[in-house]
Write a protein that binds this DNA or RNA. Structure first.
Length: 546
RNA sequence: GGCCCCAUCGUCUAGGCUGGUCUAGGACACCGCCCUUUCACGGCGGCGACACGGGUUCAAAUCCCGUUGGGGCUACCA
């Protein structure tokens, strides 16, 4: 098999049809994946086989919001489809009516929209109608297909009606476990077809008749996984009310939607054997499978739904960029071929994404590293774009952004772009532009305003400020430098007390930049306010001491 | 319990298939220094790992077996 693949590969390679890929460098595994990729994107009949183009899908069940784990799977499917020039399909697995709610559907799609993960085919959402020729794209509207498939299996004796009660099954399940043996197939399996047909109005499920032998699933990530069929029970495919069970529904939907690559979480790895059996039994072509490890939280546990950050929109609310989240999540399970490279735009990701470099082991979500990556993305943002986002955040924070003009915000952006790890940090970096100083941080007060001569120094600084005619960062800095030289102290000695008076804090944007933005009048007023604070607190101390 | 998957610095990982070039490389974090008005950015340096035990071999992070740990499946959930 491998030889055959390599030969065909070589043939195409020699014909120059595999531009840019060197055969010699590649392992058989990689060659096989690349070959499959090649076949998939091949627009013309190839060796007598007409290969369709890549079709990937994400099939979430809308039970609340877009979970970070679902987002990873969506991302990998989407990136792969985009890389291969294929189609990305969104299908809603909303068969569990109790857990499905339209507000959930909306919330989830909002997550995708924020991330910028768009689908070529999918259900109606908002003002957009459904897209694609393989609908409907909501599983709840596809029951006829599932039932039809179930009936076909029944008719071909590949499935049977099971009249066992839950209680009976439970007893057998427990007995099997106690006696350390496999579960016995129930008697219904061998019921005469005609007899069973007569009882079809009785309460029953339809079970798939798992054949003898073993099942192999060729997985793009996990390699070939072999399962002994005796490990698989005759699983239910249709509930008593005729509704399909998940296993039947996914297989039928994936097949009918012509999905070529099923890329999903490795929690489905064991299920894949069942699915393959179903694909075969229904006469469908098997898709390629790829089972990716799931996303773990910072403690190494499965990312709980209740944890902050499980909802991708939490990250939006916390000031992270969607492109940064996509970059980070892509890195959680994929390594670029280009070594020592981690920063990717979405376009670069679509180009570089390579399924042979998908990782097999689960990765923790590391907030610190994500912070760093987000900071990198913020730095590479066009200033005008960053400005727009910053203004929105400040407005949301309740600041009166209308009082400043565009040029002012442009300067603020320029001054802060290098400092932000998250967008939201802009609030702490610029609140003093919009609000009066309510209180001064205790530590810097002690350090800079309690020193001997603080009052004199502040008085002198106020004098220098008053003397600055052209109120800009450079003249102001020059004035400060001049004073420093005259009285023989470093710039820092002048800057810190000033920063405290102007912002109430010890950290923030560059002092002279910030003073420029604040304006001369406000600066002077705050310096005088600071001076008064020093004087009164000295008085208080004096009073307390006596 | 049975079956399946996974296992390199604290974290994400390169290397593993094709054993020697790995006294194990990078990134984040941490620590130190430099730059600097603070913080951040940036630069330089440091700390830090092949889970354990057996094999195979002249040689194992790499191949094999076992153990341990983590995860999954084992539903008339998806």
């Amino acid at each position: 098999m491998e030889d055959c693949i390599m030969r065909m590969w070589r043939l195409k390679y020699d014909e120059g049809l595999l531009g840019g890929v060197s055969l010699e460098d590649d392992s058989p595994d990689r060659a096989m994946v690349l070959w499959i990729e090649f076949l998939s994107r091949c627009p013309t009949p190839c060796f007598g086989v007409f290969m369709s183009t890549v079709r990937c899908r994400i099939a979430p069940s809308p039970s609340g919001f877009l979970h970070i784990g679902t987002a990873k799977m969506a991302l990998f499917n989407w990136l792969y489809a985009r890389k291969m020039g294929g189609t990305f399909v969104l299908r809603l697995e909303d068969t569990d009516a109790e857990r499905t709610d339209e507000t959930f559907v909306k919330a989830m799609c909002e997550g995708f929209t924020w991330l910028g993960i768009d689908w070529d085919e999918g259900p109606a959402f908002g003002d957009d109608g459904p897209r694609g020729d393989f609908g409907p794209y909501r599983q709840s509207e596809r029951k006829v297909f599932h039932q039809e498939a179930g009936q076909k299996l029944l008719a071909e004796n590949k499935a049977y009606r099971c009249f066992c009660t839950r209680e009976e099954l439970e007893v057998e399940r427990e007995a099997a476990q106690r006696e350390k043996r496999h579960r016995n197939k129930c008697a219904c399996r061998n019921l005469d077809a005609a007899a069973a047909e007569q009882r079809k109005d009785e309460h029953h499920t339809v079970r798939f008749k798992v054949p003898e032998g073993h099942t192999e699933v060729a997985d793009m990530v996990q390699g070939t996984v072999r399962t002994e069929n005796r490990e698989l029970d005759d699983f239910v495919i249709l509930k008593p009310n005729g509704d399909p069970i998940f296993h039947l529904a996914v297989v039928v939907d994936d097949a009918l939607m012509k999905i070529t690559h099923v890329i999903r979480g490795d929690d489905h790895l064991t299920n894949a054997a069942r699915h393959v059996l179903l694909f075969d039994a229904l006469g469908y072509e098997r898709p390629q499978f790829a089972h990716l490890p799931m996303v773990l939280d910072e403690t190494g546990k499965k990312f709980s739904k209740r944890l902050h950050g499980a909802n991708v929109l939490d990250w939006r609310d916390d000031g992270y960029l969607p492109e940064a989240l996509i970059n980070y999540v892509a890195l959680l399970g994929w390594t670029p071929a280009e070594e020592n490279r981690e920063l990717f735009t979405i376009e670069e990701l679509q180009e570089a994404f390579d399924p042979t470099r998908w990782s097999k082991s689960a990765a923790r979500f590391d907030r610190k590293k994500f912070d760093w990556l987000n900071g990198q993305h913020i730095r590479s943002l066009a200033p005008s774009v960053l400005q727009e986002r910053i203004v929105a955040i400040l407005a949301d924070a309740g600041f009166d952004t209308a009082q400043k003009d565009d040029a002012w915000f442009a300067t603020l952006t320029e001054v802060c772009q290098e400092k932000l790890a998250t967008l939201n940090q802009i609030v702490g970096l610029s609140d003093f532009f919009f609000n009066e100083i309510a209180e001064y941080e205790a530590k810097p007060v002690k350090k800079h305003w309690r020193a001997d001569g603080a009052v004199e120094l502040m008085t002198q600084l106020i004098g220098r400020m008053e003397g600055v005619k052209d109120w800009n960062r450079d003249p102001l800095k020059d004035a400060y430098k001049a004073l420093g030289e005259e009285i023989g102290v470093g710039l820092g000695k002048l800057v810190h007390p000033t920063r405290l008076a102007l912002t109430g804090k010890s950290v923030g944007p560059g002092l002279f930049e910030l003073a420029e933005l604040l304006g001369k009048e406000t600066c002077l007023a705050r310096m005088r306010q600071g001076l008064a604070y020093i004087e009164t607190s000295l008085c208080d101390e004096g009073a307390n001491a006596s």
